[in-house]
Write a protein that binds this DNA or RNA. Sequence first.
DNA 1: CGATTCCGAGAGCACTGCTCTTGACTTGTG
DNA 2: CACAAGTCAAGAGCAGTGCTCTCGGAATCG
Lengths: 235, 235
Amino acid sequence: MNASRTARDRARAELTQEIKNEARRQLAVDGAQKLSLRSVARELGMVSSALYRYFASRDELLTALIIDAYDAVGEQAEKAAEGGAPRERWRKACHAVRDWARANPHEYALIYGSPIPGYAAPQDTVASAARVPMVLIGILRETNPSPAFEGPPLTDGLAGQLRALGEQVAPDGERIAPDLPLETLNRGIVVWTQLFGMLSFELFGQFVGSVDPTNEFFDHTIEQLADFLGLPPAR
Amino acid sequence: MNASRTARDRARAELTQEIKNEARRQLAVDGAQKLSLRSVARELGMVSSALYRYFASRDELLTALIIDAYDAVGEQAEKAAEGGAPRERWRKACHAVRDWARANPHEYALIYGSPIPGYAAPQDTVASAARVPMVLIGILRETNPSPAFEGPPLTDGLAGQLRALGEQVAPDGERIAPDLPLETLNRGIVVWTQLFGMLSFELFGQFVGSVDPTNEFFDHTIEQLADFLGLPPAR
DNA sequence: CGATTCCGAGAGCACTGCTCTTGACTTGTG
DNA sequence: CACAAGTCAAGAGCAGTGCTCTCGGAATCG
């Protein structure tokens, strides 16, 4: 399992990376729709068929980009949420995700928009996709939330799903959140969907004509969600 | 402005509709990605170039489908929200939207997923797109909400945006909601994004592995959102 | 060194959106 | 009624796509 043993291996890894880079460049400009293997190959000075030695299909290339995108936004969120009071970590994580999304709208659309073809999104993506929600769970685990209002009781089936989710084993071998109250876990999922619902609406143009510069609405809602979660108030 | 005057006009309108129907059929099967003018034409027994007499481009056909989709889901929501107590109207509207989305996932993706090309979505779509949020506003206007918790105060800029939104003139010539408290309007936008955030996550596969059969989570959240809005409790 | 594996190039297939021209048909009007 | 104007479907064609297969040359391994 020696990494990059032969010159060929190194060249292959390098070229694979260059293909992804060029693809990402084109993705950022024109969107996933117009990303073409041929133009990637052309830009790299090779012929299209050669590219198939590295990615078996256009979809496979896109899947690689999807994983990278999940990792990129996940890493941003993780770094932003390091240290500080729970509420502060929550704020920073949200803004990190939003900043990344606004800086890379096409990559955002790739992972949180409509599934591309017959959505081949395989198991490889889930570990990377889970990084942002895991950040949120990490914040919830380090506080003792006292939600702003009680809300309806969990139904049996939902409670079962949440319990199973908490017991589920993450890629790192640990269980996700066996200690988290189910009610808290449920609220975590709610705010998770709210966060990305806002971002999708903002980036996909649904807010045009209402809260169009979304900055203030976003900040206000983030704070409201923190109250909803029961994160201790700041200062 | 006599509707369907000549035989030619009638034939034209009919064929336009048939093209849209066939396109919608293909959309439902394979998604927007694979919808091709040529195959639509082929299925209709005509040649591809003939189709350009009815739609100037593929994007224009898609735009027509987008408007139809907005109208379809809007109509479902409107019908579902007729009559009853506010909370009941809210529940029914949410379920109507979800049912439509699950029955027509590709059409849902077309309007609430990633913008297709360089998103040409013109002004024509906004009136249709506004129908679902207008249903929600209609519910809010017919009650005197007492939210379940107070939440952070509106910032000046956000309050200004909300005021402008309420004064805005809808397609029917009426102002949207000049009488609605800004705080209530704000919460309306929050639950609107939450509703579609949930649907997108469900349909685009983000809930796989967590609250995967989403029925109970959806129902529970709808109720929680009703509390959040301050809709009077049922029964 | 020899055999094997890997790799890029090229040709080619079936498909796409879109344009332009041609000839036939339908209109409404002189 | 007849004729000019308008409309239409069809066909050929262009540039581009994803993907497959074959073919020589090069690197790697035994």
